[in-house]
Amino acid sequence: MKKIEIEGLNLFYGDFQALLDIRMSVREKAITALIGSSGCGKSTLLRCLNRMNDLIEDVRIEGSVKIDGKDIYKIKSGLTQLRKKVGMVFQRPNPFPLSVYENVAFGLRVHHMAKGSELEDIVGESLKAVHLWDELKDRLNRSALGLSLEQKQRLCIARLIAVKSEVLLMDEPCSALDPLATLRIEDLMQLLKKDYTIVIVTHNMQQAARVSDETGFMLLGELVEFGRTPDIFTKPKDKRTEDYITGRFG
């Protein structure tokens, strides 16, 4: 099943074209990785999927991005619904300056999804889903800013689970974490894959190889090659992909 289909996507920051005619599809309930050297447009592409680029002034976008068959650039209103459905995890864990509880409850409150004991239940379930419940159940009212980086990142994932996001966009979610924490977050991603469609940007090729089902390699705004992860890493079709994964540039 295709969850996301991107066709003929061009993006310009002013006069600078950051994405060139991207064509790609993302499988439902699978992990798709985007790799490529710094500045090639991975984050830009990812941010097209929840229309976060709309926040930047002077951005022009052409082409279509269909999620569940609907072009997200054609909807006139309901950007908040889109962003609820397509959640994002950032490179630097960014819990709000609120309590642990309020962080998870945030989306539920904003979207008026639950109240009272139902809200409490969902917060608890969401924290359990990211394996934070046992560690934090006695500290729900403490500020989330005091958590470890790994806990913060899990909390940010819990925020999305709470609002029942269907797609999780992760922009280098582990680059601020130590190697063990990274592995644990990867394990979590494997679990989440059963219910969520995940797109992850990573600089770490081993990570892409370990966690993803499909991989796209980007270079200077182009999606050079896209395919099943084992294929990309063992028999790349494009010379440039091969050079990159064998470490010849990048």
Binding site: M52, T80, R83, K84, F90, R92, F96, G107, V110, V163
Partner: peptide, 27 residues
């Protein structure tokens, strides 16, 4: 107030106003 808070809230589907009064004001 760090940009990340604002981005986090918008990315969760909060409106500009909700972002202001639920997140930015706390920071």
């Amino acid at each position: 107030v760090p940009r990340e808070y604002k981005e986090g809230a918008i990315a969760l589907g909060a409106t500009h106003w909700q972002t202001l009064h639920r997140v930015i004001i706390h920071g």
